[in-house]
Write a protein that binds this DNA or RNA. Structure first.
Lengths: 344, 344
DNA sequence: CTGTTAGCGCGTTCAG
DNA sequence: CTGAACGCGCTAACAG
């Protein structure tokens, strides 16, 4: 059935024959393992070049018991948040000549276990879990496997090795910024329940309020789903409050933009009547109207760090298991001075 | 050096032993190849389940001489255009239990040849080339390899197997739309030289003008680079023309947004003073201000089709080698009636 | 420093 | 219908 294409690439023993050495020697120069006399090495390298030799990754993996491949679990490549992480991971993996195998939860509708299976079948040497949704599911399943795992923005109880954004600092920066603009009634659109990140950002919001000397008001917290629609609905509720907020700190950029819609629908102007701060700084933040003030999360960098951590484990040179990355505030036009208190 | 993690997954001969059969039989039921007595098959399957057996993809690939992996060359995962293609390809590959190995040209700064090497080392069974930039480079190199290739929006002279958007129809829809709104001076921001897509869209623009009974004016064509900056500069030139255009048909959405900036800088309003039509319909189109009228390109679908084509080749069931996909016009707020001719 | 050899885990003839 | 045996291409001892 399958067309047995004629193999054009040369194999190790052809190189060996051509260079007049044994395959072991070829292997040694190809992998820089073991001692080889310079002259011999030169002959071998010439032969490799001449025959356009490319070691067969699978055969190599089979013999060496490691694939030089890492699996990267994300929930949606279409979301720029994850695309950035993928980019960073690939860049760093490339440096060490590792390949990255993507596992996109949105593709595998049959469940996350299937997804992980696929990756493990492919014998990935390690795994990076950057999924926001189903972290818990993965954790349960991966605990029984023997692959090292690094998670990005997950909870450390589930995966000891992690790279995380400092949500506490992020929230503090947002609240300080708003308070500095004179805002006192600052609401929070929380993320979808069940996500570690939601809990952290909510808690950090409360802590930052307290630090700023503001009272926490449960009424000012509404729950969205980290996307547009629910966030819009949640915002509407906030706007209908007797003592409505003058500013909103949103779980992420998407929910922030959801706020925009509700604010407009209420006949108010974003950045003037109501200030909005997002979290993540995805590209959209720059293009929406008005451009969104938000906390920049260095996702590409985080992807790179995750790979570094993982490779360190694989190489037995692990020194740290946990890196916290700092966000910084990008001020755009969605925040402005608090309006003189509106009559209610 | 490398920590020799203890392997927990069971192997084929363990399953065989557990089921009281030979590994050949296990292989036969695992791959549904060759005849096996139902009872025996049942015993084997039970054993596979019991031992949580997952065939080793590499060993399998080595023995079977095919990896059940396809390579996907893109130029930038951060660009939503490519992210969509990746999504579509992964979805369709998943159906046939193929894995997709991503090759991102933006990651491999050391040149596209290195990129292709990586994929070929991994012994991909076939390749999909969706890169806009370096398609030609790839073509040169891949011609010498024995891997079947399907390209997305490349030129058919380079790769006989292809899935392509119908640029001709796209341009026609755009021009008809603008003409219907009363526009007569319609400019074109062309893509970066050297890309097949640029040439096609430019030619299609001319053809559509002709069809609409409008004269082609070389002055109305400016070249951008498919991104913001150059497009902005190019637009400025158009606006400075004695007989400036009232509408612009841009190479893609990014250059369309570049137009926005130049138009604003000139004190004009997009959609009122000057209409703009893009191409692609990436997410940004929906969020910019004003929302962009553009030609929707079903990229996810195109990714799927490319995989279909490729798998057909691999299975020896190829029936067509070339699929043309239709774009459709999404009218938003960046286009409007032509203004009464401005005094110059 | 170099060659020989034994697997890595599985697909696939070929006998039975 | 089933099993024994070989080989896919390479790495890693172990001898020399």
């Amino acid at each position: 059935m399958a067309s047995p294409r004629t193999r054009r690439t040369s194999r190790i023993y052809e190189v060996a024959r051509s260079a007049g050495v044994s395959i072991a020697t070829v292997s040694r120069v190809a992998n820089a393992t073991g001692p080889v006399r310079p002259q011999t090495a030169a002959r071998v390298q010439a032969a490799m070049r001449r025959l356009d030799y490319r070691p067969h990754a699978f055969a190599r993996a089979l013999a060496a018991q490691r694939s030089r491949t890492i699996g990267l679990l994300i929930s949606d490549i279409l979301h720029p948040y994850f695309a950035d992480i993928v980019r960073g991971a690939q860049e760093q993996a490339e440096v060490s000549e590792y390949a990255v195998l993507l596992g996109d939860a949105s593709v595998h509708t049959r469940g996350t276990d299937l997804l992980v299976q696929r990756l493990l079948e492919r014998r990935v040497d390690g795994l990076i879990v950057a999924s926001d949704r189903t972290t818990t599911d993965y954790a349960m399943q991966l605990r029984t496997e023997d692959v090292p795992v690094v998670c990005i923005n997950g909870s450390r109880e589930q995966f000891p090795r992690a790279v995380q954004i400092d949500n506490r600092t992020g929230a503090a920066l947002a609240i300080e910024h708003l308070v500095g603009l004179g805002h006192r009634r600052i609401a929070h659109i929380a993320g979808p329940p069940g996500l570690p990140t939601r809990d952290e950002r909510l808690a950090s919001y409360r802590a930052a309020l307290k630090h700023a000397g503001l009272r926490y008001d449960a009424e000012l917290v509404a729950t969205g789903d980290g996307r547009f629609d629910e966030s819009r609905t949640a915002t509407r509720v906030l706007l209908d409050l007797a003592d409505a907020p003058t500013a909103i700190f949103a779980y992420n950029d998407r929910s922030a933009v959801g706020c925009y819609q509700a604010i407009r629908a209420a006949g108010l102007r974003v950045g003037t009547d109501i200030s909005v701060v997002g979290f993540d700084d995805i590209v959209m933040a720059e293009w929406v109207d008005p451009p969104l003030t938000t906390l920049h999360q260095p996702r590409i960098e985080m992807g790179r760090i995750a790979v570094d951590l993982l490779l360190a484990v694989l190489n037995g040179t692990e020194t740290v298991d946990h890196v916290v990355v700092q966000p910084h505030l990008v001020v755009r036009a969605s925040t402005g001075p608090a309006p003189a208190s509106r009559a209610c």
